[in-house]
C-alpha cells in the first residue's frame, strides 16, 4: 500500500473553529488565503491584525495570531499605532467596504497619505453584510439593497466609490491591486497580490492595499454560482481587476 502523503492541510495560522460565514461568501476564502500566506512567510508569531466592524469582525475566531478589534472604520489607525509601537512586527487590517470606504474614509485616506508601512485587505462586497444588506458606498448603480429598494439612484446616493483609484494619486501609497475570487485562476492571482502586499511591508516598501471583490450571495439574493457570475459580469465591469498602482 502506498504511503499516505499530505497534499493539503489547514494552515497553522487558522484555529480549529470552522468558518461561520454564509455559503459562497468571499470572507472564508480571503481568510484562508491570508492564513496560508502568513504560514508561507513563516511569520505567524509576529503578526498583529486588526479586525473590522462588519461580518469579518469575527475574523479573530478563525485566525490563530494576535488580533484586536477596532471601532467601525478606525482599523487602519489602530494598525498604524501598533506598527509604530512595534516596527518589527507584521501589522495588517482587514476591512469591508462600509468600514473602509464609508465611515472610515478619513482614516483610510490619512493612513495611506502618511504612507504607513502597513497592509490593508479591503473586502468589497458592495453592501453592508453584517447589518442585513444595506447600500454601501460601493453598491453598483441601480443595485437593489435594503436601503435602495428601487436600485441605487445616483441623484440621491452618488456613484459607487472606486477606493483604489481614489488613493492612487497619493504619494505615500506604493501598491494597489484589485482582485476577485470567482474561479481558481483569479484566486491564484488574488493570493499573489495579497502576498505581494505583505512582502512590501516586510521589506519596508510602505502602504499597500488589495481590494478583493467578494461575493455576498445571502444579501445579493443569488446562489453562490450566480453571485460569482455577477462579479465577473457586472461588479468587475465597474471595478476593474488588476494592478492600479505599483511603485514598489
Amino acid at each position: 500500500m502506498a504511503k499516505e502523503r499530505v497534499i493539503y492541510k489547514k494552515p497553522e495560522s487558522l484555529t480549529d473553529v470552522p468558518f461561520t460565514y454564509c455559503w459562497g461568501c468571499g470572507h472564508s476564502m480571503a481568510h484562508k488565503l491570508i492564513a496560508e500566506i502568513i504560514d508561507e512567510l513563516d511569520m505567524r508569531e509576529k503578526v498583529i491584525a486588526v479586525a473590522p466592524v462588519g461580518c469579518a469582525v469575527f475574523a479573530y475566531d478563525f485566525w490563530d495570531f494576535d488580533v484586536t478589534e477596532a471601532a467601525h472604520g478606525r482599523a487602519p489607525v489602530v494598525a498604524t499605532a501598533i506598527k509604530r509601537v512595534h516596527p518589527d512586527k507584521f501589522v495588517f487590517c482587514y476591512q469591508g467596504d462600509g468600514d473602509l470606504a464609508s465611515i472610515g474614509m478619513a482614516e483610510t485616506i490619512h493612513t495611506a497619505n502618511r504612507g504607513e508601512n502597513i497592509s490593508v485587505i479591503f473586502i468589497n462586497n458592495t453592501n453592508y453584510g453584517m447589518t442585513g444588506g444595506q447600500m454601501a458606498p460601493t453598491s453598483l448603480i441601480s443595485q437593489v439593497t435594503t436601503t435602495s429598494p428601487y436600485g441605487r439612484d445616483v441623484k440621491n446616493a452618488g456613484y459607487p466609490i472606486k477606493m483604489l483609484e481614489l488613493l492612487s494619486p497619493l504619494q505615500g501609497v506604493k501598491y494597489l491591486e484589485r482582485v476577485k475570487l470567482t474561479d481558481v485562476p483569479s484566486i491564484v492571482k488574488a493570493k499573489k497580490a495579497i502576498k505581494k502586499a505583505f512582502v512590501n511591508q516586510l521589506t519596508n516598501v510602505g502602504f499597500s492595499m488589495v481590494e478583493v471583490l467578494s461575493a455576498c450571495p445571502a444579501n445579493w439574493k443569488k446562489d453562490p454560482v450566480k453571485a460569482n457570475k455577477w462579479i465577473d459580469e457586472e461588479v468587475s465591469e465597474y471595478f476593474p481587476v488588476g494592478k492600479i498602482k505599483d511603485i514598489t
Binding site: A70, R74, V77, V78, A81, I82, R84, V85, A106, E107
Partner: peptide, 22 residues
Amino acid sequence: TFIQAESELISINLVFGAAAAG
C-alpha cells in the same frame, strides 16, 4: 512616537492601538 492626528477620532484610535500594543 509623535503623530499629529488628522482628527480627534484618529487621535483616540491611535492611542487605542498604541495601548493595545502595550
